[in-house]
Amino acid sequence: MSAPDFQLKGSTVTVVVLELHRYAPEEFSAQLEARIRQAPQLFEGSPVVISLESLDVDHPEVDFEALLTQCRALELRPIAFRALPPRFSAAAAATGLAVLPPGTARGRNIPSREAAPAAAEPEPAVELHTESSPQRPGSRPTRTITRPVRSGQQIYAEGGDLIVLAQVSEGAEVLADGNIHIYGALRGRALAGVHGDASARIFCQNMDAELISVAGHFLLSDALTESVHRKPAQVALQGDVLNVSAL
């Protein structure tokens, strides 16, 4: 049997959601253009989901074709409607776009550059925010290493957590902006929260580190007590003191 030409996979992407509160064609274009002008690179060619969740219940019929044309004219690429009221389904289906159920995840507002004057203005008819549905808000990328980290190697998980499924050898260094989890022996150096995250922690199966550090506070191997040495342990910052405790 020959290999298939394709594979179907589930995936999650972060998209811009355009949450429509009201639709008045002239105002819409003007407001959207003003909003996009604040960060043109962010929106250019960007896929957009049009959400009708916060549209007034008794809002008159929306001309979807006109709405899409206006979006496309401003370089947005509408891909779907979300939370479509049943009375609009026929009109929306005619546009050929996908229809998604109401979102469950909380979106993150794209900050407006002119926050103060915007607050004084009447509520804008359009709100843009990015959203990545199954991920929890604020979740960060995790780097996973499956092979031993050898002497002389340095692994850095930028902006997130680091998971090492093997050992970290003497003379090796692992760093992360977030937490570090090591499911083997830690014999080298581990530095968590290297950009100052004091809540970051280090977890390992076998604590035999040369140096451990959280947010710049560090301990050397001779500071490790008998109760944690070569045992499962975690490292956390409490105030200004780095605490190593058995797991």
Binding site: P148, R150, Q153
Partner: peptide, 9 residues
Amino acid sequence: RDSDRILGI
């Protein structure tokens, strides 16, 4: 330790 280093390389 040197062997560990060469394994990394």
